[in-house]
Amino acid sequence: MSNANKAKGTRYESEIRDFLNARGFDVKRVVQMGRADQGDLHGYPLHIIEAKSVKSIDLPAFVRQADREATNAAQPFGVCFVKKVRGSTGEGYAVRSIATDIRLIRRLRDMEVALRGENFELYEALDRQHREAA
């Protein structure tokens, strides 16, 4: 990989970090570890993020890499953020396998049921907040 490509990747990782942190997260870039790599960004709840800013998009390879790196980082979910050509950071794509997405949605569903049963007023307030944030 040329230094120009590495710089492009580093720039995109920083863009994602800044974008997420401006929205209330505490995301940090992490050091690459070769075979034991743990993704590009940590601090996105329950996830590692693998960032890709490339001309040639290879979704199967990206998803495999994100899943492998989530396992390495002991996180339940991997996601690959892929830069949209001539698009803003927020217009990029979040890519995961359908199997991973199902696990994530099941977890969200089960946690919502638990919260609703434990503290209905808090559940209603959070539900309203997130519906209005769209």
Rank of each mutant, 00 (worst) to 15 (best):
R68Y: 05
R106G: 02
K8S: 08
S53E: 09
A125Q: 11
M111G: 11
A61I: 04
L20S: 08
F62A: 10
A99I: 06
L108S: 15
G117T: 08
I48L: 01
R106H: 13
L59D: 11
N119K: 09
K84S: 03
M33I: 06
M33V: 01
L46R: 14
V54R: 12
F25W: 13
T10G: 09
K6D: 06
A66W: 03
A99M: 06
N72C: 00
G87Y: 03
L122T: 14
E13Q: 15
E132C: 07
E50A: 05
I48D: 02
E91D: 10
G92F: 06
R103V: 00
R106D: 14
R106L: 15
I105C: 07
Q32D: 12
A51R: 04
Y12R: 09
S14F: 12
G34F: 02
V95A: 13
V113P: 00
R86F: 06
Q38N: 13
K28M: 12
E121P: 00
I16C: 02
K28Y: 11
I48E: 07
S97H: 02
R23V: 00
I57Q: 10
Q65E: 14
F120P: 05
V95L: 12
F81K: 10
R107P: 01
A4R: 11
H47M: 08
R35S: 10
P45H: 09
I105H: 08
L115V: 10
G34S: 04
S97Q: 01
F19Y: 15
K6R: 15
S2F: 03
S53W: 07
G24D: 00
V82M: 03
